[in-house]
Design a protein around this nucleic acid. Structure first.
Length: 847
RNA sequence: GCCCGGAUGGUGAAAUCGGCAGACACAGCGGACUUAAAAUCCGCAGACCUUUACCGGUCGUGGGGGUUCAAGUCCCCCUCCGGGCACCA
């Protein structure tokens, strides 16, 4: 290039990320120690910075870019603050897409997955992310999934892994079972238009409900987690205190001698005017066997309920019921009440049976109105409470007392609940109890690409009980070259060498379990493996895990608020009880970043609004792409991707580059300049630098509003540019120039690592910029000499006056009164009151 | 229905503890440089009224009320948008 002879800006020195970034990437890739975590023997405090591991689809998307830009900035900052940082990455590599891709491209899942991992790793390196690749974890490799199997055996030993026949969500498209959490709106989470069916299958489960109380109680202590996530988990666990009460069935048939109802309002039991059963309740079934006409009606109700469940319209289902013609006896008052079967009673919550109290429950009221059942009031507002809230149904329990309830009359509702539950227990027809919405975790999947479950079935020696594979036989390798083109049944069931096995107990012929594990198993403990990823004797070394855990900061999308994060908490508690670790919770702090939006909606292939990170990097560089992801919005909010914005950041980085090339080459070795004779320009530069250091340090340590951190760096650069002429003229000392450019580069390092490394080298900085101590804000240098004070008259701005920074109240007031404009406003008025907030404002209240 | 978020210029946003609303950017407009364009640099920029211009004024943070010398910020009521949960007894 030619023609641009003027001064410093020759073409060859222009900011060119396409040249700078690959050069530095090569340097970093060649140095495995750069981002390596140190051992516990280091004297430094530890910091475990973790971003959620991606599914290796083959392509990073902008959500990843955002997630990892946040984590990377934090990790680099913590390093510069002198911490021993663990910043690992891995691959959630099992799961259905690999099988789908295999069908489509005739590529085996393993090959497809490993190829994708390689591609995404390249993208991550291009992004300049500071991962410790020595601790990389890939969940689909036997080195990892053998420990899934090991944990399964431990859980089986402790009775935490068990089999039961259960109604399962079946996606016809996936031809597999889905967890409740994978059913969204009655449809499959992967096939949004495919309605999930109910099927009966024998499945493996993890007894997460055993930890229900602890999972719930632990949420209160997770103060570093978003309240939103904690609330979602609380709702998911759905703990509910109530009472079980037995109603005897009149003229009992077979097993159907009593009906146990679950209620949270046992205080209303004198108002119970019917018992309502779920269609699938054993007593419903027993009645149906005796009466064909009734059976048909009950089946009808069941069909309605299932259909509603499938379309997720359960909340809106029209209530239907059928009177069985039979009666149950209320043990509290000996009264006969009719037994109904209804479509809105769920078999899998509580006991599948309720007592219906129309006067004090919305749903019961609606049902009773429809079928003309008796509505009997047994609760009234406590005296002194106004009666308007007492219209039926009256559901209050505070400030409300019992009536028409025999010996319990006059008791407050809450007190009555405890006393009546105790009474039921004493008399042997009930007890206080706790019910959960949380269900045990179904982990069986009838798929190929997952961890084989390490159990065998032997008809000879153990026809009823599955047998665990001995630990010494692990891993049970997932066979390769399996035909996964057939869609029905487990693919592994068709591999004879896999299925046929010698019984570990009797040595005879036995069959292997052919289901694989839910991939949420993989992601429930991967972050422990990061602490010791190469260990072949154990999932990890306890000392190492205990050094690093809990995770100091976990960063990811809010879509994992329930599933992944509750399973991870469960797994941590199980591992603690196995004696492997000491912590009760996996992560001290959790951060959920917002979505990346384009043209008003979430980026997705179907909407065709996907922006490729590779394109952005090719056009503007990785630094600009990452920095934009942090600049465009605070990290917890949704971010609108605007390509022009990335261009703006790129322009800003060019400015920085130009200025450092021009002035920074003087070097960074000397950092102190408290030269008393520093020029006004020099003082202004140092003042802005130290203000910026304070601001960014505060952002990192506090609320993570990196958008304002970056804007403050821009302000600093604007200040530098404004003093360019003064620097040209030699009015600013070399020391001040050095300090300013050195500080600027260090502040930039967490956000734009490539450029920071480049500039550091240009300036002759010692060592690696990312291991250089984070600059410290000098309050003395940051202090303003003069500040502007707004002066208001009756709360309206009159003028702004300049005063020395340390002015006291009287001086500020005097300066305000001395101002001409202010004086004009005050003319002829009576000053009633003067408010002076030192350093902030003056307000004259006049009449 | 319940529980969380959110609503500020043309756009993304800032205002962290009740103290100058719109920092910093994007887009736009004007200018410098250039044969020209790109790039770069400088400047303008909430709306409205007034004014040749300067100056000046009024309104303004989804809507309505309130507290206060002072409200985007606190309190009460309402609207809309996003997310989660939902006959869970």
């Amino acid at each position: 290039m030619n023609g641009n002879a003027a001064g410093e800006g020759s073409q060859g020195q222009r900011y060119n990320p396409a040249e700078i970034e690959p050069r530095w990437q090569a340097v970093w890739d060649a140095d495995a120690s750069l981002y390596a975590a140190e051992g516990h023997e280091t004297g430094k405090p530890k910091y475990y910075c973790l971003e959620m591991l991606p599914y290796p689809s083959g392509q990073l998307h902008m959500g990843h870019v955002r997630n990892y830009s946040i984590g990377d900035a934090l990790a680099r900052y913590m390093w510069m603050r002198g911490y021993n940082v663990l910043h690992p990455m891995g691959w959630d590599a099992f799961g259905l897409p690999a099988e789908n891709a295999a069908l489509k491209n005739q590529t085996p899942p393993k090959e497809w997955t490993l190829k994708n991992i390689a591609a995404m790793k390249t993208q991550m390196r291009r992004m300049g992310l500071s991962y410790d690749w020595a601790n990389e974890v890939t969940t689909c490799l036997p080195e990892y999934y053998r420990w899934n199997q090991w944990f399964f055996l431990k859980m089986f030993e402790k009775g935490l892994a068990f089999r039961k026949k259960s109604k399962v969500n079946w996606c016809p498209e996936c031809a597999t079972v889905l967890a409740n959490e994978q059913v969204i709106g009655g449809c499959c989470w992967r096939h949004e238009d495919t309605i999930v069916e109910q099927r009966d299958l024998t499945q493996w489960f993890f007894r997460i409900t055993q930890y229900g109380d602890e999972l719930l109680a632990g949420l209160d202590k997770l103060e570093g987690w978003p309240e939103k996530v904690r609330t979602m988990q609380r709702n998911w666990i759905g703990r509910s205190e109530g009472t079980l009460v037995d109603f005897a069935v009149e003229a009992a048939v077979g097993d159907a001698a009593k009906i146990t109802v679950f209620t949270t309002r046992v205080d209303t039991i004198f108002g119970a005017t019917s018992v309502q059963l779920a269609p699938e309740h054993p007593v419903s079934k027993a009645f149906a066997l005796e009466d064909d006409a009734l059976r048909v009606q009950i089946e009808g109700l069941l069909a309605e309920q299932q259909k509603a469940k499938e379309t997720d319209a359960l909340g809106a289902i029209e209530k239907h019921g059928v009177n069985t013609g039979r009666f149950a006896v209320n043990p509290f008052n000996g009264e006969r009440v009719p037994i109904w079967v209804a479509n809105y009673i769920l078999a899998d919550y509580g006991t599948g049976a309720i007592m219906s109290v129309p006067a004090h429950d919305e749903r019961d009221f609606e049902f009773a109105q429809k079928y003309g059942l008796e509505v009997r009031r047994v609760i009234v507002p406590a005296s002194g409470t106004n009666a308007e809230g007492s219209e039926l149904p009256y559901t209050a329990e505070e400030e409300a007392v019992l009536t028409g309830s025999g010996e319990w009359n006059g008791l407050g509702c809450v007190a009555a609940q405890a006393k009546m539950a105790a009474f039921a227990k004493e008399k042997g027809f009930g007890t206080a109890t706790v019910t959960y919405r949380l269900k045990d975790w179904g982990v069986s999947r009838q798929r190929y690409w997952g961890t084989p479950i390490p159990m065998v079935y032997c008809d000879n020696c153990s026809p009823d009980e599955p047998l665990p594979v001995p630990e010494s036989e692990l891993p049970i390798l997932l066979p390769e070259n399996v035909d996964i083109t057939q869609t029905n049944g487990s693919p592994l069931g068709r591999v004879a060498e896999f299925v046929n096995v010698t019984c570990p107990k009797c040595g005879g012929k036995a069959r292997r379990e052919t289901d694989t594990m839910d991939t949420f198993v993989d992601s429930s403990w991967y972050f422990y493996r990061y602490t010791d990823a190469k260990n072949s004797d154990a999932p990890f070394d306890s000392d190492k895990a205990n050094y690093w855990f809990p995770i100091d900061q976990y960063i990811g999308g809010v879509e994992h608020a329930i599933l992944h994060l509750i399973y991870s908490r469960f797994w941590t508690k199980v591992m603690r009880d196995l004696g492997l670790i000491k912590n009760d919770e996996p992560a001290e702090r959790l951060f959920t970043q917002g979505m990346v939006i384009k043209d008003g909606s979430k980026m997705s292939k179907s909407k065709g609004n996907v922006v490729s990170p590779d394109d952005m990097i090719a056009r503007y560089g990785a630094d600009a792409t990452r920095m934009y992801a942090l600049f465009a919005a605070p990290p917890d909010r949704d971010l609108e991707w605007l390509e022009e914005g990335v261009g703006g950041i790129s322009k800003f980085l060019s400015r920085v580059h130009r200025l450092v090339m021009k002035f920074g080459a003087a070097g960074t070795a000397v950092a102190e300049t408290q030269d008393k004779a520093e020029s006004a320009a020099g003082q202004a530069l140092l003042r802005k630098l130290h203000q910026t250091i304070a601001k960014i340090t505060q952002d990192f340590d506090g609320r993570w509003h990196f958008n304002t951190s970056i804007s403050s760096i821009m302000i600093l650069v604007n200040e530098i540019a404004a003093h360019e002429a003064a620097m040209d003229a030699g009015e600013v000392s070399d020391g001040a120039i050095r300090e300013v450019f050195r500080g600027l580069t260090l502040l930039l390092a967490p956000f734009a690592p490539f450029l920071a490394a480049e500039l550091w080298q240009v300036m002759g900085g010692e060592g690696v910029v990312f291991r250089t101590a984070w600059p410290e804000a000098n309050a003395e240098l940051a202090r303003e000499n003069e500040i502007e004070i707004p002066v208001q008259v009756n709360g309206k701005l009159a003028n702004v006056v300049k005063v020395p920074a340390e002015s006291d109240e009287a001086a500020v007031k005097a300066a305000a009164l001395a101002d001409e404009k202010v004086a004009t406003r005050l003319e002829g008025k009576n000053i009633v009151k003067v408010i002076v907030v030192p350093g902030k404002l003056v307000n004259f209240v006049v009449r």
